[in-house]
Design a protein around this nucleic acid. Structure first.
Lengths: 147, 147
DNA sequence: GGTAATTTATTGCACTTGCAACGATTATGG
DNA sequence: CCATAATCGTTGCAAGTGCAATAAATTACC
C-alpha cells in the first residue's frame, strides 16, 4: 500500500456535514439564550414543548415524538422536576407509565420561552425568504421518507 | 401566576428542530458504518478529510475550516495518531504549531472511506431529486450569511 | 392461574463534550 | 532588550451522552 490516489472530495459540499453545521448554527442561536437566561438545555426544551401542548404524557411518548433516546428524555425530565418545572406522577391505569405535566411554574416559564421561539422562527423564515419553500421540501424528503 | 395562556407552537414545524433531526439522520447513516467497520467517529472523519486534501495542517487550521472546537480537534487528532492514521510533527518555523499529516495507513484508510462518502452523497442527492437545488440554496442562506 | 415474554423508565459505565485554565512559544511595543 | 500581550495546543473538570443492564409492571400464552 503505497500512497494510493484519493478521490476528489470537498467536505463543504458534503450534505451530512453542511446540514450538521447549519443545524448547530440554528440551535445555538436560541439555545445559548435559553441556557444563560433560563438554565434550560435543548433536551429539556423539547420535553417542555411537548408537555405544553399535550397534557399528560409518558416518557415513551416523548421519546417517540421528539426524536430523543428514552434515557435522554428521562434525565431531562429529572432535571426539569428538580427545577420545579414539571411534575412526575405514576399513571394508575398502567403503573409502568409516568404522567409528566407542567407545573404552574413550568407554564409560566413556557409563557416566556414560546414567544422567543416563535420570533426566532420568524427570523429564520425571513432569512430564508424565497428559498424557504424549497428548503422545507428538501427537509421533508430527508426526514419524511418511509424507512 | 396562574395558568397563563400559552401560544400555539408546533415543534415539528420548528426549523431548528427539523434541521437537527434531519442532520442527525444523515450523519447516522454513514457514521454508524464508519464506526462499526473502521472505528472512526465523526470528528475523526472530519479531521481525516481535511488532511486528505490539504497536506500539512495545524489544529487551528482545522478548527477554522471544519467547524469544530480546538479541543475537539486536538482529541480527535490524538486518537487518530494512536491508531496510526496521522502523524503529528512540530512546525519548526513556529514551534507553537503542529503539522498534521496522513500516514500511509491513513491514506489507505481514506482510499476506502471516501468512495463510501461519495456514494452516500449520491444517494442523498437522488433522494432529494428535484428538491436538491432549492434545499442547497436554503442551506446557503442559513450558513453562508455574514454573521 | 402461573410462568415466560414484553414494555417502561431508570441507572451504571465508559466515553465524549465544552469551557476555562494552563504551559509553551512567538509577537508587540516601549 | 525586556516585559507584556497574544497565539497554539493540551488538559482538568464537571456535565451530558449512548448503550446495555436492570427493576417494576403488564401482557401473552399454555
Amino acid at each position: 500500500m503505497t500512497a494510493p490516489k484519493l478521490p476528489e472530495f470537498d467536505l463543504t459540499r458534503f450534505l451530512p456535514y453542511r446540514l450538521a453545521v447549519a443545524a448547530e448554527k440554528l440551535s445555538e442561536g436560541l439555545a445559548r439564550r435559553y441556557r444563560s437566561e433560563f438554565g434550560i438545555s435543548v433536551p429539556e426544551w423539547r420535553v417542555l414543548v411537548h408537555l405544553a401542548h399535550s397534557g399528560n404524557v409518558s416518557v415513551r411518548d416523548i421519546e417517540a415524538r421528539v426524536a430523543m433516546e428514552k434515557s435522554k428524555v428521562s434525565r431531562a425530565a429529572t432535571r426539569l422536576e428538580s427545577a420545579g418545572y414539571i411534575a412526575k406522577e405514576i399513571n394508575e391505569s398502567d403503573r409502568r407509565l409516568l404522567q409528566l405535566s407542567l407545573t404552574t411554574k413550568g407554564r409560566a416559564l413556557m409563557a416566556r420561552l414560546l414567544p422567543l421561539a416563535i420570533a426566532y422562527q420568524d427570523e429564520i423564515a425571513a432569512r430564508l425568504a424565497e428559498t424557504l419553500e424549497g428548503f422545507e421540501a428538501g427537509l421533508d424528503r430527508i426526514t419524511g421518507g418511509k424507512e
